[in-house]
Design a protein around this nucleic acid. Structure first.
Lengths: 338, 338
DNA sequence: CTGAAAGCGCTTACAG
DNA sequence: CTGAAAGCGCTTACAG
């Protein structure tokens, strides 16, 4: 049933029905009630495409994932939060996957030109990120999950990666560790740079050396954590403590430590940054894992919120947040050996 | 830029431009080439909402997730595959999250009435699932990921859950195990019923008892795997082998086994069903984990394919597939002790 | 092979 | 507070 039919059926004009349904103020309360009741009863719902064509709004927010690689467990948590928030305002999420940077840029051009979305979410930004300049040039509103440098201000939400790793490094140094390794993420990304800066700066402040052999990079997988930890342990002077970038890397690191016959929390201390997965808790590892933590689901909800405000005309520079990160000490960290 | 402007700019009618761009056959090849080149050069893209209004197609496929709980690592892999496939045909994915069954039903009604999607994907079906009847009543095309019983035929893709667990149970029984436990999923779902049937039937065929104390249910989390494994090990006659429903449950089970001071693959054998996560491989656990496996990402791609065919008018009864499951023996299974 | 025009189902300035 | 009508930007039967 369309508006014309529905309006005729209840004896009102299309105008009045449309206004009543979209919460427009100048409608007599009884009229509105009658319209809403009839819509419910007869199952009338405005055609979304027509609505969008008439208003010029897409009613959707886009998010692009590069390859399978970046659609991992963090993505699901983030999407869960984002979707929960946008749902409340009837905004759809449009998911695209691409293989390369070029394809990602092409996807944004396409989304912008076809007016398929009102805004996009950009994630895992590099320190200077071509996507930001592109979106600004295209005039397609966006929120960045993470931080980056750009000439013009833009909306973003990031966690305090520097603070998280600084806290972890300090804690390990307070326990007497002098060789502290870092299993970091993708080298190009801002978060990896921030984490490494925190590690380096904190060590320096304690008079400790940031040994280049004690930092490694890679995707947040069990595999990478394992490989890096094994290479650390093979060094002439292996580290007595390690900071892993995620729960998945930490699982790999724990495995390498176990295989080497070392006791976690005793011979080697381990801290992971944890994005809080409902299906895998640091409390449940053996030993329980000390973590810096920040719920990525909550970040997704908040970014949904910010996207809605952006569309309501708030300035990007008013939509910039950095969240502090919690630190929870558990059994995987202990005094440095000997 | 809209069609009118663009057509004027290149000196053709809107009709011809529209036809050239949408691959309509009766356009002179040179004309089409000229139109496509100009569109590329001038950045013209048809407005998606107008296109949808005119054609009556939404150009999107919906998928609803219940709560955060069901948006886990399996969802991300599946979505990665689905999105990759649909992308190729320019079909969007619309993600909704709801909290309850009622809300899920309401979401389908809304999607149908507002013509927001052309089809939906239903996942984790129960043995008899109200969603299927509802979607058939609404006339909203759908594909089920999993299987269910219904009066009218419908399109689905499932893996051979029965075969997977039958194979695993046989293998353990061949190794001499007589007390084989099962860490199962959500009781209401078809896959859990199929897996339990396989376990029960295979044990019976070998003259072994399907002890009710040796089967447990729950979400596929590390936590549940741990708890169930601990309860099995606390039995007067604990199992010597266990089949876990997912990698996450297996991680928990492995932990419980380790804490109990038992040797995996020696004192206790473990097989997991693995949906193939790129960030956590069964080869990388210690010991490497024997698995039945099926790539959920590939299932996502295939379901995207089936959805497109459904929209092209193929009958649901022609779109029904059951995929075999691989079995890979690794180090976590061995002969029954003593 | 190409074009003029109706129609898809809404919203919203304008008029009352 | 309500309505008649134009317009959003496409597609597509119809005519040539």
């Amino acid at each position: 049933m369309n508006l014309k039919e529905f309006a005729a059926r209840i004896g009102l004009s299309q105008t009045t029905v449309s206004r009543a349904m979209s919460g427009y103020p100048e409608v007599k309360p009884e009229t509105r009630a009658r319209v809403l009741e009839a819509a419910e009863r007869l199952g009338y719902r405005p055609n979304i495409s027509a609505q969008r064509l008439a208003t010029g709004r897409a009613g959707a927010i886009g998010i692009v994932f590069q390859g399978g690689g970046r659609f991992g467990p963090h993505s699901s948590e983030f999407m869960g939060g984002l979707s929960t928030r946008l749902q409340r305002d009837g905004i759809d999420i449009l998911v695209s996957t691409v293989e390369t940077e070029e394809e990602e840029a092409a996807a944004y051009r396409r989304l912008a030109a076809s007016k398929r979305v009102d805004a996009v979410i950009v994630h895992t930004p590099a320190c200077t990120d071509a996507r930001i300049a592109l979106l600004q040039a295209l005039g397609l509103p966006f929120i960045v999950h993470g931080r980056s440098e750009a000439k013009k201000p833009f909306a973003f939400l990031d966690i305090d990666n520097f603070g998280a790793i600084a806290t972890a490094t300090k804690h390990l140094s307070d326990l007497g560790h002098r060789r502290i390794a870092l299993i970091n993420g993708d080298t190009a990304s801002t978060y990896a740079r921030d984490r490494e800066n925190a590690w380096r700066t904190t060590l320096a402040a304690r008079g400790l050396q940031a040994d280049p052999a004690l930092v490694g990079y890679g995707e947040f997988t069990d595999e990478t954590g394992f490989r890096l930890m094994q290479s650390f342990l093979a060094l002439p002077a292996p580290p007595t403590a390690v900071i892993a970038g995620s729960m998945m890397s930490a699982l790999g690191a724990m495995r390498a430590i176990r295989i080497a016959g070392l006791a976690l929390g005793d011979d080697v201390s381990l801290i992971a940054h944890d994005d809080v997965f409902p299906y895998l808790s640091p409390d449940n590892l053996v030993p329980a894992l000390t973590t810096t933590q920040s719920p990525i689901r909550a970040a997704g909800e908040r970014i949904g919120d910010m996207a809605l405000r952006l569309l309501q005309g708030e300035k990007p520079e008013a939509l910039q947040e950095v969240w502090p990160v919690d630190f929870v000490v558990r059994a995987s960290t202990g005094p440095a050996p000997f």
